[in-house]
Amino acid sequence: MAVKAPAPRPLSPHLQIYRWSWTMAMSVAHRITGSALYGGTVLLTIWLVALASGPGAYASVAWFFGSPIGYLVLFGYTWILMHHMLGGVRHLIWDFGYGMEPTERIWLARMTLIGSSALTILIWAAALLLR
C-alpha cells in the first residue's frame, strides 16, 4: 500500500516578503552593529596590548590605524559604535513604555540613523580640527 505523501504545509512568512520599514531596518541594524562591535573589540585589544608591549609593537599598530585603510576602519567603527549606542538608548526608551506609537517609533528609528551619522561626523571633525 502506497504511503501518501504529507500535504505541503503552509510556511510562516519569511523576511523577504516584508516591505522594509524604518523600524525593521533599524532593528536589523542594531543586531548587525552589535555583532560588528563584538568583533571590533579585537582591534581595541590589539591597540591596548601593543601600547602595553612597548614602542616597537605600538609603532606598527599606530602605522596601521594611521593608514588610509586604518582611517576607513576607524571611521566605520565610530559610526557603528554611535549607531548601536543610539539604538540602545531607543530600546531603553521602549523598555520604559514610551515611544511605541507608530509616528513615535518611526521618528525614533529615523533619529537613530540621522543621530549616529551626525555624531560620527561631529567626532571626526572635532578630532581632526583639534589636532
Binding site: Y38, T41, V42, L44, T45, L48, V49, L51, A52
Partner: peptide, 16 residues
C-alpha cells in the same frame, strides 16, 4: 572570547 578580551585589555591598562 569575552573573558579573553576582558583579561587582555585589563592586564594591558594595568601594566601601562
Amino acid at each position: 572570547f569575552a573573558v579573553i578580551i576582558a583579561a587582555a585589555c585589563i592586564f594591558s591598562i594595568l601594566k601601562i
